[in-house]
């Protein structure tokens, strides 16, 4: 049994793929730090190299095009237990066919990558749906979110073009980093002394804009009155809007 260990980064995984090809090896597992190792396996420690990673990435791009690259990267973000091996086998298949294989859905690893890609994109879409801004006293709009996968970077562009004339912060409270947009440029930030509650991300009393409560009240009232009582169907509501998002929702938060 042969086990590759890498540093858990995407370039690290690409390096692992490079090494496997180079050493003509077929690892039985490619493991990130903290993953459950194989019994009695011989271990090869991958040393992340930007250069090797770039070469693999360029190869995937040349054969599979940008869409393949995106699929693989999104799948990686899922942190699924088998994602490394799926990406490795997918790449082997891709290079063997020397043509895009993303629609070869009867191939188990292509299907796996396809499904993980969809899953991660669905979570990214949910950020677009359920993220809520609150205006802080200084005028900045603040939105906390803790997506299941690290997808905030995928949606920043959407918010930048949409809310181009307001300064905002979108903060991943689970991963402790976010993005600040000052109406011109975006920078990645970490907040050392948060003025928001850690559970909901709601701004603390006194730090929000004086009008903020008024808009909350109007939105909640709208939310209530637009529903038709005779058609009440809470199961349907929960299917579309899983409970784990409620803590961000102005209309659902207590």
């Amino acid at each position: 049994m042969l086990e590759y260990q890498y540093d858990g980064t995407f370039p690290g995984l690409l390096t692992a793929i490079f090494d496997a090809f180079n050493r003509k090896e077929q690892p039985d597992a490619i493991l990130r730090p903290g993953a459950q190792g194989l019994l009695f396996a011989s271990v090869y420690a991958v040393e992340t190299s930007e250069e090797k990673a770039d070469r693999v990435w360029a190869g995937i791009k040349r054969v599979g095009g940008n869409t393949t690259c995106e699929h693989l990267y999104h799948a990686f973000l899922s942190l699924d237990e088998q994602v490394e091996m799926a990406i490795f086998s997918y790449s082997k298949h891709l290079f063997a066919c020397n043509a895009p294989v993303m629609t070869d859905l009867a191939h188990p690893d292509v299907l796996k990558v396809h499904k993980l890609d969809r899953m991660v994109l669905r979570e990214a879409h949910r950020v677009l749906m359920f993220l809520r801004f609150e205006q802080a006293a200084d005028g900045t709009y603040f939105a906390p979110f803790a997506p299941q996968y690290d997808v905030i970077p995928l949606v920043i562009g959407h918010f930048k073009s949409r809310f181009a004339d307001q300064s905002w912060i979108i903060y991943d409270t689970k991963r402790g980093y976010g993005f600040y947009f000052n109406t011109q440029t975006i920078e990645q930030i970490t907040i050392e002394n948060p003025t928001f509650g850690s559970a909901t991300g709601k701004l603390r009393q006194g730090t929000e804009h004086p009008d903020e409560d008024k808009w909350h009240e109007l939105w909640r009232s709208y939310f209530k009155h637009i529903s038709i009582a005779e058609r009440k169907n809470l199961t349907l509501q929960r299917n579309f809007m899983p409970k784990r998002f409620w803590k961000y929702l102005t209309e659902k938060r207590l």
């Binding site: 749906m129 359920f130 637009i226 529903s227 038709i228 058609r231 169907n233 349907l236 809007m241």
Partner: peptide, 8 residues
């Protein structure tokens, strides 16, 4: 952006 209690 949201779903009402009638699931719409």
């Amino acid at each position: 952006h949201s779903f009402t209690e009638d699931g719409r």
